[in-house]
Design a protein around this nucleic acid. Structure first.
Lengths: 144, 144
DNA sequence: ATAGCTGCAAATGCTTTGCAAGGCC
DNA sequence: GGCCTTGCAAAGCATTTGCAGCTAT
């Protein structure tokens, strides 16, 4: 868990005012492991930890964090925005049944050949989403 | 452009009742080239062509088409669902400025190495989204 | 002091749903 | 005839916004 000083430093680094609420969210988000959350999930977690913060502020903060480049958004489900604290180029497993999102490092998932890019355009981002489902025969011992 | 008979055949093939509205949408969607549309865009196009159909029906129809496996949905922008008439495994260019979505065939974009799949899960779908933006120096002649 | 945040509630935008009327087999 | 589909309007859900009051610099 980040302490307050580090949270404040992180926010000042990207020219965002370190308000109580942003510090709280920063402490929750930037731990050792990367996190994938929706605004709603982050809000619940903040409330659970005893912080006083409104959902609208969580949305505002996440959008500022995104503009500042310290989180990025991931689209895997219609009508829902996930935010990812891993801003390095990387990819995802997505488990639809549970809504779980897992990081796949750029090294683990190399692209052999990119297509020809349309004229006058440049690549901004390449994202691979690997959608998973529970195996039909999860237990090999039960097979005939 | 598909004729009515082919549209009806297509719908019967997937056990969907060939109603006037579904036939109209089928005729618009399944042309020679693959299409990427939102429900709203498809509705406008249908109205423009003189068909009488409500937006709710377009949503309903697209969801049935998706269940039937003749279109699939693509998520590239928050709060918007694109439908793609190409149901083969393939990938996409996405141009954020214009909202344009372009197909990239599976052959043009090969993955060299997939990561290790978590135990008890199997891969359902692998999607690559290549986000493009206009090049800063679109005209090479203007360079120093 | 002042520019920028917060929180509430209201608004928005896309999508879904309930239900009565109409259409397909 | 019976079941499915349509269309409208209303509901739903995630997200954004307006504005008054508060806070960091």
């Amino acid at each position: 868990m980040l302490n307050c000083l580090k949270a404040i430093a992180l926010l000042k680094n990207v020219a965002l005012r370190p308000t109580k609420q942003r510090i709280a969210l920063t402490k929750i988000l930037f731990q050792d492991n990367y996190l994938h959350v929706t605004a709603e999930q982050l809000h619940s977690e903040a409330i659970r930890k005893g912080y006083k913060i409104s959902l609208a502020t969580v949305y505002n903060a996440l959008n500022r964090f995104k503009e500042a480049g310290i989180v990025k958004q991931v689209l895997v489900e219609p009508g829902k925005i996930y935010f990812d604290t891993n801003t390095e180029p990387h990819h995802h497993f997505y488990i639809e049944e549970t809504g779980e999102l897992l990081d796949v490092s750029d090294d683990e998932c190399k692209i052999a050949s990119l297509p020809i890019i349309p004229a006058e355009y440049t690549v901004n981002q390449v994202e691979i989403t690997i959608r998973l489902e529970k195996s039909k025969d999860a237990d090999p011992r039960s097979r005939n």
